[in-house]
Amino acid sequence: MNDEQLLRYSRHILLEELGIEGQERLLAAHALVIGAGGLGSPVLLYLASAGVGRITVVDPDVVDLTNLQRQIAHDLARVGQPKARSAAQSMAAINPEVQVEARVERAGPEQLDALVAGADVVLDCSDNFDTRHAVNRACVAHRKPLVSGAAIRFDGQISVFDSRGHDGDPAVPADAPCYACLFPPEAPADAVRCATMGVFAPLVGIVGAMQAAEAIKLLAGSGRSLAGRLQMLDGRSMEWTEIGLKRRPGCSVCDPAVPGAAVAGR
């Protein structure tokens, strides 16, 4: 690190759990962020401010006036612009050293296969189950840690799904679950969106900031991640609930005994 970087990241360097080595890991890391909306906004701003060296953001949508109630990476002047590019502008204003790739496209299985393979951590900030399951499958296939968050109405949740097992973090159980263990893709799911259900504006900031924190910890090799744990927030009372998660036998994504699983043949 040069003198300017030592000064910029001095508050991280002062932390015994991060230090210079942890910050250098962040500077050399590549984060993939799916979604530049309510959750993606705080995620992207915090990753950039923390000095994550490369950040790829994928989002097919454009900034709408209704987004500005909660999507803090965008402003009124950018209404009509692609969210991915708008977020990239905000990130550059905070930290121009970060290399940002803004992809204005939907994250389908083919795109994700290539993008996830080149990332060190993946953050799912999307708003639909199809994308979440596609992201999870790619992360399991490429053994990449996934930080997953969701927020609707006054309810938020966050977890880490780390298919690396002991290869990535000795604290992560070798049989850690994937997203599909919790929400089986074959089970019917109700499509709930902010456009129809509403969302409490600060809620996406709370969950998104926690997603960024989990990703930074994973990249820096600091602390204990949320792998194997799901935290849920009731924003009405500001009460957190945590439940333990285990791998689901017969999971169609992470159980190698199931034909067509993402880990088949590994």
Results as ranks from 00 to 15, higher is better:
H12E: 11
P82T: 08
R224L: 12
M238Y: 07
V62H: 11
Q231L: 15
F183N: 10
D155T: 10
E101Q: 15
S90N: 10
P256S: 03
D255E: 08
V79S: 06
N136V: 03
Q89P: 00
Y179P: 03
V104N: 05
Q5C: 07
V104L: 06
D75M: 04
S163A: 14
P185E: 04
C254K: 04
C254I: 02
N67P: 09
V52Q: 07
A171K: 14
T131V: 14
E21H: 11
S163G: 02
M91A: 10
M197W: 01
A176K: 09
V104Q: 14
A48D: 03
C125I: 03
G19F: 11
A195C: 01
L245C: 09
Q23E: 12
S10K: 03
S222Y: 09
P96C: 10
G235D: 08
R25E: 01
R193K: 03
G22Y: 08
L14Q: 13
A264C: 00
A180C: 15
M238H: 04
G165M: 11
R132M: 08
V43P: 09
S159N: 10
R11L: 07
I20P: 10
A88V: 07
A171S: 13
E16I: 00
R103C: 10
G149Q: 08
L218Q: 11
A87H: 14
S148V: 01
N2M: 05
D130F: 00
G244S: 13
D124Q: 08
T66F: 01
R229Y: 06
H12N: 15
P185G: 02
L226P: 00
V122P: 14
D162T: 03
V104H: 03
A201Y: 03
E24D: 09
R106D: 09
Y179M: 02
V57W: 11
V57A: 09
P42Q: 02
V258M: 07
P96A: 15
R143Q: 14
G235Q: 11
A114W: 02
R224N: 07
G228P: 08
R164D: 05
L7S: 11
E105T: 13
P109R: 14
D167R: 14
D59V: 13
L112V: 12
L226M: 15
A88L: 01
T131E: 01
N128F: 10
I72R: 05
I152S: 06
L76K: 09
Q5A: 15
L112Q: 10
L218S: 08
E17H: 13
I72A: 08
N136Q: 03
V258F: 04
I206T: 15
I72T: 13
S90A: 15
P184R: 03
D255Y: 01
G165F: 07
R11N: 10
E110T: 14
L233F: 13
A180Y: 02
S237M: 04
A213Q: 12
V172N: 00
P109G: 09
A138V: 04
R247L: 05
F200Y: 12
L218R: 12
